[in-house]
């Protein structure tokens, strides 16, 4: 089987997982055996998506190109969806909340679904991307983005739970959601920082300038500043609940613009 076919199967299996979750979350109580089984299935599907990425890597070597599958929009979207799914599984294991997966899986699906409209061919790297910095830069950035995605999901749920006073059987307590919103940023923020630093190091090595205010650089810095404000508000000024949730939404909007919006502005990162 080719990695491309495996990726397609993974998308439909994620979709099946989501329907499964919808079913068990409405029909069975928390910590039921059915919910645990669904988690097991999700982990297996995530394992398959890992295999698909590995397979694409191997295929690139078989084609004599030999490079990590992290170098165009298609590959970055696949890796982003992989990172979000990983983050969702970690949150489920740590905080035992299924609703985060229920809201998060559609994001994984949309991310992967987007790749259906893109060119899947494995192409050799242009000179600018031939660097070992590529892997570490892309991996840290997207793992950071995944952390922010989880924070966004928890913040969204928090606002919904608060607005409709809806926690109880189906939704977790606002306190827990608030905690997840914060903890996810606490993990995503250092990763984004390292992503920016490795990007700067690479830029210095390739172009002789660690910072050139290219739109993607600038927007990653804007994202970084929003989450810096988030952490300072939380840690030093005791912001909680509604206000940090809104900041998390703003931060995630900045993440999305850094990833997608910047492509409509000219710059050095036009291959992503």
């Amino acid at each position: 089987m080719t990695s491309s076919a495996l990726t397609t199967y993974v998308v439909f299996l994620y979709l099946a997982c989501w329907f499964g979750y919808l079913l068990v979350c409405t029909a069975t109580p928390p910590q039921s055996a059915a919910r645990r089984a669904m988690l097991g299935m999700l982990v297996i599907v995530w394992g398959l998506s890992t295999a698909a990425i590995g397979l694409r890597w191997i295929e690139s070597y078989q084609m004599g190109i030999g490079r990590a599958p992290l170098s165009n929009l298609y590959e970055s979207l696949i890796f982003f969806s992989w990172s979000i799914a990983l983050a969702l599984i970690i949150v489920r294991l740590r905080y035992r909340v299924d609703s985060v997966i229920l809201i998060g899986l559609p994001l994984v699906l949309v991310t992967m679904g987007y790749t259906f409209f893109l060119d899947r061919e494995i192409k050799p790297l242009i000179p600018a991307l031939q660097s070992n910095w590529l892997v570490i830069h892309v991996v840290t950035c997207f793992l950071g983005y995944a952390g922010f995605t989880v924070s966004f999901i928890a913040a969204l749920l928090y606002l919904v739970v608060k607005a409709f006073d809806a926690h109880g059987k189906y939704l977790p307590t606002p306190e827990l959601l608030d905690e997840i919103t914060y903890r996810a940023v606490l993990v995503g923020y250092p990763l984004l920082t390292v992503g920016i630093i490795t990007g700067a190091a690479w830029a210095d090595y390739a172009w002789g300038s660690y910072w050139s205010w290219d739109p993607k650089e600038t927007w990653s810095l804007i994202t970084w500043m929003v989450y810096s404000a988030f952490l300072h508000a939380r840690l030093a000024r005791d912001w909680k609940g509604h206000r940090t949730a809104v900041l998390s939404l703003v931060g995630f909007a900045a993440v999305l613009f850094t990833y997608f919006g910047v492509n409509y502005l000219p710059g050095l990162h036009s291959y992503f």
């Binding site: 600038t218 927007w219 929003v226 404000a229 300072h232 000024r237 900045a254 910047v262």
Partner: peptide, 24 residues
């Protein structure tokens, strides 16, 4: 004051946005 930190960070973020929209 940490309030200054938060305000400066937000203003810097907004200012940086201008730089990516207005041709430089």
């Amino acid at each position: 004051s940490v309030r200054t930190t938060i305000v400066v960070l937000c203003v810097l973020a907004v200012a940086s946005i201008f730089g990516t929209i207005i041709p430089q």
